[in-house]
Amino acid sequence: MYTSLARASRNDVVSSSISFAFQPIADIESRTVFAYEALVRGPRGESAQHVFSTVSSGQLAEFDHHARIAAVNLASRLGLSARISLNLLPGSLHACPGSLDELLGRAQESGLALDQLLIEVTESEAIERPGEFIDLLNRYRVHGLQLAIDDFGAGYAGLNLLADFQPDLVKLDMHLVRDIDRAGPRQAIAKGVLQVCDDLGIEVIAEGVETLGEYHWFRRVGVRLMQGYLLARPCFEALELPAFPERLGGTEVMARDR
C-alpha cells in the first residue's frame, strides 16, 4: 500500500511538471494519421531541452518511464484513435526494468489497445545493447507492441542490426532526408535501406520532411509514412491533423502555397 501511494504521488509530480506536444506521422496514401509521436514539453509548452535540464541524471530513467505513462494518459484524454509513438531514452529499460509492463497496464486502463503502442528506440541504443535489447523487446511484441528504430541510417551499423533483429518500423535519419531530392549519395543510401526494409517486411518512416521536393522523392520510391514540418508541426496538448499536399494538375502542392 505504501509503495502504491508513493508511486501515485511521484506520478502526480511528474505529470504536473511535464506535458506533451504531439506530431502526426502521416500515411500519405490513405491520407490518415498512422501515429502521433509524443514529444516532451514543459507544462506551459517549454522545450524538451528545458524539461530535461531540470531532471538529474540519476532520475532520468524513472522520469522517462513516468513520462510515457503521462503521454498515454494525455493522448487518451484527447481522444486518440491512431497509434501513439513513445520514445525510450537510452539505458532507461535497463535502469527501470518493469517499465513496459506498467506502461501496457496503464495504456489498457486508459482504453487504448496494445497494438496502438509504438516504441521508438534510437539506432545507437539498439546497437549498444543488442542481446538484451532484442530479448526484452521480443517479449513485448507478443502483446502487440510495435517497435521502431529511430534515427536509422545515422550510422552504417544500423543495417547490421537488422541481421539479428527486425523491428516493425524504421525512421530514416533526418540528415538523410534533408534535400534528398537533390543529393545523389543520400538517395543511394536511402534506396539501399528501402530495399533491405522491403525484403524484411519493415515499414519505413521518412522523418523531418520539410519540403515538397523531399516529399515527392519519398513518395516516388514508395514510402507512405512521413513526419515533418511540411505536413504538421508538433502541436502542444492537441492531436492535429496533417496538411496533406493536394493534387493540382500533374503534381501535388501544399494548399497554403497556392
Binding site: R139, Q166, G201
Partner: peptide, 9 residues
C-alpha cells in the same frame, strides 16, 4: 529463412 519472431496474433 526470412524471419522468425514472436507475434501477437
Amino acid at each position: 529463412q526470412i524471419i522468425r519472431e514472436p507475434i501477437a496474433h
